[in-house]
Design a protein around this nucleic acid. Structure first.
Lengths: 221, 221
DNA sequence: CCGGGCCTCCCCCGTTCGGGGGAGCGAAAA
DNA sequence: TTTTCGCTCCCCCGAACGGGGGAGGCCCGG
């Protein structure tokens, strides 16, 4: 067995400490992998990146704090182009996988896939090879080529209004929250529905939650 | 007690195979724990329960299929009273923790807690001791005593209507889907809002998603 | 310079919602 | 038995919503 120099340096980024530790145990059982660090948020991963010098970051897309996995992926790739990112996600938020791949992720594994796929993705990423979970690689690639679902055509203000919708607010309440007139909110809501090709606000809420534009965790009713 | 030398027989129930395998690696590193089985759904866990004879089931509340973690907990306890259930959950669906504890779970650990807490909960459960994650034990107990949030006062029909709401349907569409009149749907929706003390359907959708009454995974818009 | 997107607000109008009432029916509990 | 509860449907009515139009101000890029 060769010493450390052939080991792949891996960092885990997942806010679930229990899951994180489990993955560490599992991945460390492979002699060619070395877990050099773990982070519970995008910010933490970036802050410690230069100290860890990982070859691969296994990134959960759903993390707390201002920075989500997509943004963290983008910044990891900008800060350390040598470091490859493998996205690890629940099948719930596949919508953001495309965004993560666009942001520079090289691999993608679903949490409900066989764990061997994760190992293969990490090993592939270390070699610069892209390993996409076969369970959904087709649909993901399809979305990549046709430019995404219906995504970020929304303006900043419209995203703010959409976030308000997810909080279950009425037009009047949104108007107060954003300090604009109720008519303005009506316009924004109408434009959101039009851009997303939806019929009413409730569908917009579901869309936002499915896309991960707003996390259910942040919502209080 | 005499069976000190015997290992605690543990079963993992989590639809995320990657997470499941990670947990297996981690827990198996403790010599007093033995992972005797793993399931990806409530149905699978129940079907194999009598073959595994576990002392403790570590149960994720969010699982696919008709049976969720709460129902699976209830049935595990009914089928094998010796077996204790430790609930493992994301902090997103704390609302269902109370339901799981009522259904017979003895322990409760959040995924973003320190992994040692999970080990402590499993060991405690094997001795019949309740270990609740200190991060939220207070609020959970509070809800337990005051009888739960606003929960399952909904009738079966009302839950069906609520599920339809989560799909973004209008009253008319729901009426067609359930083969009743639109006025009937209006009545149900009104009763749902009244029982849950909400103001409009969008809030009902958010409520249902937060409570896990309907999974976002099942929704297509 | 001028077009275009964005944000803001206004109008009108038809539809949908939500809340109030009532009522018949069947099943289950008291 | 009577009572209660869930499911079904009906009425009325005010409020909220969604779609259509327009308009002024802003800044950016061709």
């Amino acid at each position: 067995m060769s010493p450390d120099k052939e080991k792949t340096r891996v960092v885990l980024a997942d806010d679930h400490r229990v899951v994180q530790t489990g993955l560490r145990s599992y991945l460390e059982s492979f002699p060619d992998l070395e877990i050099v660090g773990a982070a519970a948020s995008g910010e933490e991963a970036l802050a410690k990146l230069e100290g860890w010098l990982p070859d691969v970051v296994v990134m959960d897309l759903r993390m707390p704090g201002g920075m989500d996995g997509v943004e963290a992926t983008r910044k990891v790739r900008a800060l350390s182009p040598h470091t490859q990112v493998v996205v690890l996600t629940a099948h719930t938020d596949e919508a953001r996988v495309v965004a993560a791949l666009r942001a520079g992720a090289i691999g993608y594994v679903r949490k409900d896939s066989e764990p061997e796929i994760l190992v293969a993705a990490v090993r592939g990423a270390a070699r610069g090879q892209s390993v996409l979970d076969p369970a959904v690689a087709g649909s993901v690639l399809q979305e990549l080529v046709r430019g995404g679902p219906l995504a970020e055509e929304l303006s900043e203000r419209e995203k703010e209004v959409l976030a308000q919708l997810v909080h279950g607010r009425t037009n009047r309440e949104i108007a107060q929250a954003l300090h604009v007139g109720e008519e303005t909110v009506k316009t924004h809501v109408g434009n959101i529905l039009s851009k997303l090709q939806l019929n009413h606000r409730t569908q917009a809420v579901i869309y936002a939650l499915k896309q991960g534009l707003v996390s259910l965790d942040d919502v209080e009713i």
